[in-house]
């Protein structure tokens, strides 16, 4: 291997609950938000990420390191993403999609959105309302009419007692 020509640049990221994380610049710039800060020379000290908590940021950094270690092979990157997301629960996925949006990481954003859609696919209307904090603004009559309109879509829906 070539001799060291200098240590790779490391950035320090700070979550909104004041946890500090070190991450290689080459991995961190997967986030367009961070890349812009680096390019603008604003990344000298600690980079505060006010919309991301420590638990989520740790996860995102794991992803950054994992995906940037994979050479340009879309198949392998995809299988890494699938594996990375496979054990995440709904709450974690929702936090991650918000973080990916804030950090402007389109590949993570796409993967997490697709995963959330996959989780939602067989869920009930009640599950969706609870998990996303959506208020049912239909009157009972209106709701019955909408359901009647697409009656067949209520077959094969999972029961609500899971997460």
């Amino acid at each position: 291997m070539a001799a060291e020509t200098g240590t790779p640049t490391t950035l320090t990221l700070k979550s909104n609950d004041d946890e500090l994380f070190s991450v290689a610049e080459s991995a961190a710039i997967l986030s367009v938000t961070i890349r812009n800060m680096v390019e603008d020379g604003c990344a000298g000290g600690v980079i505060p990420l006010d919309n991301v908590d420590g638990k989520t940021l740790a996860s995102v950094i794991t992803y950054m390191n994992g995906i940037s270690a994979i050479p340009a092979d879309e198949e392998k990157k995809k299988s890494y993403r699938d594996k990375f997301l496979s054990d995440k629960d709904f709450e974690t996925l929702a936090d991650m999609v918000l973080a990916a949006n804030y950090l402007n990481m389109s590949c993570l954003m796409d993967a997490v959105s697709a995963k959330i859609a996959q989780v939602m696919e067989k869920k009930s209307v009640g599950w969706v309302r609870r998990k996303f904090g959506i208020e049912n603004d239909y009157t009972p009559e209106e709701e019955a009419a909408v359901k009647e309109e697409h009656k067949w879509t209520f077959e094969g829906v999972e029961t609500d007692d899971d997460n």
């Binding site: 939602m120 696919e121 067989k122 209307v125 969706v128 309302r129 959506i134 208020e135 049912n136 603004d137 239909y138 709701e143 909408v146 359901k147 309109e149 697409h150 879509t153 209520f154 829906v157």
Partner: peptide, 9 residues
């Protein structure tokens, strides 16, 4: 799924 979720709100 989309048609079903029309009744969310």
């Amino acid at each position: 799924t989309l048609f079903r979720f029309k009744s969310v709100c």
